[in-house]
Design a protein around this nucleic acid. Sequence first.
DNA 1: CCTACGATCTGCT
DNA 2: GCAGATCGTAGGG
Length: 199
Amino acid sequence: MNRILPRSFYDGKNPVPVARALLGKIIRVTRDGCAGRIVETEAYGGPLDRASHAWRGKTPRNESMFGPPGTAYIYLCYGIHRMMNVVTGPVGVAAAVLIRGVEPLEGAERMARRRRVSASDFRLTAGPGALTQALGILIRWDRCDLVCGPIRIEDDGVRVPRSNIKEGRRVGVSHAGPAANFPWRFSIRRNPWVSRARG
DNA sequence: CCTACGATCTGCT
DNA sequence: GCAGATCGTAGGG
């Protein structure tokens, strides 16, 4: 039986170790029957991180990034793609982990219908916009609780040793000055469900 | 009010 | 390799 990650798992203002620890965990849309293993993440946050949405301070859009640990920050990107983040900081501190890649575990056929690709195609859930579409994650779930809300994150006992974690630069943040070089992107080595994006 | 653009993805070249 | 899709957000006038 999988264990739902307790709030204490997220509760630290530094999203970097949380981004590492989320690799291998399971993201599940409770009422939908779709679930996948997290294989790629990126950490965002802190006063030096110009790549973070919260770098200029709190706005109505990024406010949920300042919310309690163990909640979601979900927003629309490029007018099309929904991005799913896990909030880690204590209330008032903006820190979050972007989920960038997931390996399908349950409900792959349902995901394939939503994505309009075959269930065996890596495009099913590789990439932050792809996985939210596949899992049916909605913008209105922004701020939702990951311990008892529509999206849950579980631990089934799988461990990802540090030697199996690849680190690199985050994707799509080249405008962010020195922060563009922070090695805050993490993925499971040689996992085919990691996004193709350069980093 | 108006405009520029972004933590992306696909399809076509 | 690159343009286009598509729209909420933020910042300026």
